[in-house]
């Protein structure tokens, strides 16, 4: 019980620190902006640890963070193999294929106003559907290995990517297009120098949304059948053995992979669309 009380006290103290930091004169500096969320994150971990230990919560319901960290370090080789299978083979290859195909189709479609007006509402509709449900079908078609996971990812990222690219390619104003005409730019030049750069913020928006979708698709598709490795397989197998520390370790891997993937795309975006107002501030 003392541990629980201590957790409560720790919570109050750290919240007080954050409150003071956030309302201090220096709250706009980068350091404080970084420190405050870090303190909050650490507080959550500490409170979690203390409450779980203090109330003797069984491991099969909620393991404390220290046990999860131990499992993570001890099972690193297995986690790495799962990561390669699910992320590199399944998610990444599907992401590349799906995004390339969607951008290519969008560029084709954009040239025909008729198709664009038809495809945009339909694509919007399809993007909102629970596409993850196609996973059992695709697993049936492409077998249990990573090919079927890549296929699920392709289907999942395709429509968000398509509508974002099409929307982006029609971003240019009549004035800008006229300017290109006065320069006597041919359609190809106008595309490379005006329309494609103007579409980049939208394309990257789609690419960023797709990073999360890709990982979700690859993991959930493994629930429908997989070889004996992979993050989704490990999660469902470990749940069967009530080894929740292993499940949490996989979730840590998924979280790290997901945010790193997103972060890398965001960094590339910063380099490509440096001119856009959202990047200049």
């Amino acid at each position: 019980m003392t541990l629980v009380i201590f957790a409560f006290v720790f919570w109050l103290v750290s919240w007080r620190i954050n409150f003071v930091l956030a309302n201090s004169a220096a709250s706009e500096t980068r350091l404080i902006k970084l420190v405050v969320p870090v303190i909050f994150g650490i507080t959550i971990l500490v409170v979690w640890e203390l409450v779980v230990r203090g109330l003797n919560v069984p491991l099969v319901i909620l393991p404390p963070p220290s046990v999860i960290a131990d499992t993570f370090l001890a099972k690193l080789p297995i986690l790495w193999k799962d990561f390669i299978q699910t992320f590199v083979k399944g998610a990444l290859s599907g992401y590349l294929i799906g995004c390339t195909a969607a951008i290519a189709l969008a560029i084709l479609v954009e040239r025909f106003d008729f198709l664009r007006r038809g495809l945009l509402p339909v694509g919007n509709f399809l993007a909102a559907l629970p596409i993850i449900g196609t996973a059992p079908i695709l697993v049936m078609w492409f077998g249990f290995d990573w090919h079927s996971k890549a296929a699920v990812v392709v289907v999942m990222v395709f429509f968000p990517m398509l509508i974002n690219t099409v929307a982006g390619l029609s971003e240019t104003t009549a004035m800008q297009r006229d300017l290109m005409k006065t320069y006597s730019a041919d359609p190809w030049q106008a595309f490379i120098k005006l329309r494609l750069p103007a579409a980049m913020p939208f394309i990257f928006n789609g690419l960023k949304i797709s990073t999360t979708l890709a990982l979700i698709g690859a993991i959930v598709a493994e629930f429908f059948g997989s070889p004996t490795l992979g993050m989704g397989f490990r999660i469902s197998a470990s749940i069967g053995q009530l080894a929740l520390d292993m499940v949490w370790a996989e979730i840590v891997v998924a979280a790290i992979a997901g945010s790193a993937f997103y972060g890398i795309v965001a960094i590339i975006e910063k380099g490509v669309t440096f001119w856009h107002p959202s990047q200049r501030g």
Binding site: I132, I216, I219, M231, I235, V247, I251, A255, G258
Partner: peptide, 11 residues
């Protein structure tokens, strides 16, 4: 939002 939250659903 960048974390595949759906993966913890079974748990």
């Amino acid at each position: 939002q960048t974390i595949p939250i759906l993966a913890i659903a079974p748990m």
